[in-house]
Computed example of a mutant assay.
Amino acid sequence: MAKHKIYTMSVAKVYPHYVLKAEKKGRTKLEVDEIIRWLTGYSQEELEAQLEKETDFETFFAEAPHMNPARALIKGVVCGVRVEEIEEATMREIRYLDKLIDELARGKAMEKILRK
């Protein structure tokens, strides 16, 4: 079975859409970055380096310094699919990120988004 197209897509290509979605709802790029850092364990400098290198999603998550164990608390539907029921690990990580950005755009408090 061929890999899903999103795996080979550059995170840097999708990142501006995450930021735009957040900013349209009065949120900030800093909040988007905080969510990504919380999920993956990248520092701000490491995140920026990954974006600059145009790392693909599969590599981005495979090389993440420390995937946050609290990500298992992320529940809900993204693109018509329940994130907690996604079997394939990389796709689940991508959808976790999508879900967190959706929550940010809907105005949810950062403490709740970051499962504190």
Rank of each mutant, 00 (worst) to 15 (best):
A72K: 00
A70E: 11
F60T: 10
V77A: 03
R82W: 08
F60P: 13
N68P: 02
G41A: 11
Y42C: 02
F57C: 08
K75Y: 02
L47Y: 04
A64G: 13
T40L: 09
H66P: 01
Q44C: 01
E48V: 05
V81Q: 11
G80W: 08
T40I: 07
A62N: 15
Y42T: 04
V81I: 14
G41N: 09
F61A: 12
R71M: 01
F61Q: 08
V77C: 00
L47Q: 07
E45D: 10
G76W: 05
E63Q: 14
R71A: 01
E63K: 15
M67I: 15
I74N: 01
P69N: 08
H66S: 15
E45G: 04
P65S: 14
H66K: 15
P69Y: 05
S43E: 05
E48G: 03
F60E: 11
P65Y: 14
V81F: 09
A70H: 05
T40K: 10
P65E: 13
G80M: 07
L73S: 00
M67V: 15
M67F: 12
Q50V: 03
E46F: 08
V77Q: 05
E52D: 02
T55R: 06
N68H: 13
L73R: 00
V77L: 02
K75C: 00
F61M: 12
Y42I: 02
L73K: 02
Y42P: 03
S43N: 04
L51N: 04
E54S: 03
N68Y: 06
Q44G: 01
E45W: 06
M67H: 14
C79R: 14
E58N: 09
A49C: 07
E58G: 02
C79V: 13
N68C: 04
H66Y: 14
F57S: 07
T40N: 05
E58H: 07
A70G: 03
N68V: 07
E54N: 04
E48S: 06
A49Q: 14
A49P: 06
M67W: 14
G80N: 10
C79N: 14
L51K: 07
E48Q: 09
T59C: 13
H66F: 15
E52K: 05
E48Y: 07
Q50K: 12
R82L: 13
M67Q: 15
N68G: 04
F61Y: 15
P65N: 14
T55Q: 04
A64E: 10
F57L: 09
T40P: 06
E58L: 11
V81M: 10
A64Y: 11
T59F: 12
C79T: 12
R71Y: 01
A64F: 08
L47W: 07
R71F: 01
V77P: 00
F61K: 10
C79W: 11
I74E: 01
H66Q: 15
F60I: 13
E52F: 01
V78F: 13
V78S: 12
V81H: 08
T55Y: 06
E46C: 03
E45F: 06
P65I: 14
T40H: 08
R71W: 00
K53Y: 08
E54V: 02
K53Q: 11
F57P: 07
Q50P: 01
Q50T: 05
N68E: 06
A64Q: 09
E52P: 00
M67D: 11
G76A: 04
K53H: 06
R82M: 07
A49M: 11
G76H: 03
T40D: 09
G41Q: 11
